[in-house]
Computed example of a mutant assay.
Amino acid sequence: MSSHSFIKFLQHPRLFGACAWYFVPGYLFQALSYFSWVCWITPDNVVVNQLFGYGSGLGMSLITFDWAQITYVVNPLATPWWSEANVLAGFVFFFWILTPILYYTNTWYSKFLPILSRTSYDNTGAAYNVTAILGTDGTFNTTAYEAYSPLFLSTTFAVTYGLSFAAITATITHAVLFFHKQIWAQSRRSIDKQPDIHARLMARYRQVPEWWYLIIFVTMFVFGVIVIEVWPTQFLVWGFVLALMIAFFYIIAIQNINS
């Protein structure tokens, strides 16, 4: 950046103000980033801190002065309102309604664990020792698992896992229901015949030969098979092929939803 451009940047009040303000919640007064004002009223109340705290709670205070926190999940300036509303409704239902119900009813022995944690635990409340349930070859040992402990997760962690699997299924289902005609039509057209704005912009550039992609794919596939067969990865070649197929289908579905 030239000195002239830098001076023009400093003269722009909104950009300069945004950059200057970031130092306040990001460095000078970090409590503004996680503004848990309810917890300040009753700092020794466990339930209040579990529900309204940010660091180890569900964040029901819902106040922040940090733009980085506002855009942590979705950027409100670049995301359609209906998408933001879906995210908000899902978050409120699963984490502000369902999670407290599961936690305070001691579902999955949840009250013995923090309500919000990314750590997995054993039956003593300690961090789960994964190496204790692995054999000498690095695979899962059922006998060692039964002798050690079942795996326990915090309520939010368990709900997040469930939502992850649900999102995977929902992605494919949504793409099939709403984009199947578009996907089929686009797959049969060349890039210069596709009507969308992205294809028209890309049509200005010379198309990369398809054999370039084929060579890269075959080379990387061979390397992957060699690694699986030579090193003790405990992975099978058919699993590698299946993973590539899953990635292929999900790329199509996800990109149609994102676009």
Rank of each mutant, 00 (worst) to 15 (best):
V222I: 15
E229K: 15
G162W: 02
P195Q: 02
F152E: 01
H180T: 14
S164E: 04
Y161P: 00
T173M: 06
F178K: 06
F221W: 08
G239K: 01
V218M: 14
M220W: 11
A199G: 04
L151S: 12
D192F: 02
V159G: 05
H198E: 15
S154F: 00
H180Y: 13
R200A: 12
S190G: 10
Y213H: 13
P209I: 01
Q194H: 11
H180N: 12
Q234A: 14
T233W: 01
A185L: 13
S187D: 10
D192W: 01
V218Q: 10
F235A: 10
G162Q: 03
V237W: 09
I172T: 11
A158K: 03
P232S: 04
F157H: 15
F178S: 10
A170Y: 08
V176A: 07
Q186S: 14
L201R: 14
H198R: 13
W212M: 10
V176T: 06
F179P: 00
Q194C: 09
V225K: 08
S190I: 00
Q207F: 04
Q207V: 12
A185E: 07
W211E: 11
A199T: 03
Y250E: 06
L236Y: 08
F165K: 09
V227Q: 06
A203I: 01
L177G: 00
Y148C: 07
L177K: 08
F240D: 02
G162Y: 02
T173E: 07
T156G: 10
P150G: 02
E210Q: 13
T171V: 10
K193V: 01
A147D: 15
I246E: 11
Y145E: 07
V208H: 07
I216S: 08
T169D: 08
G224E: 02
I215G: 05
P150L: 03
Y148P: 00
W212A: 08
T173S: 11
A243I: 08
V227R: 14
R204V: 12
A147G: 15
D192N: 14
F249K: 09
V241I: 15
F223R: 03
V222F: 06
W231I: 04
F223G: 05
A158V: 04
Y161A: 13
V218P: 00
L214D: 11
Y213W: 11
L244D: 12
Q186E: 12
M202D: 06
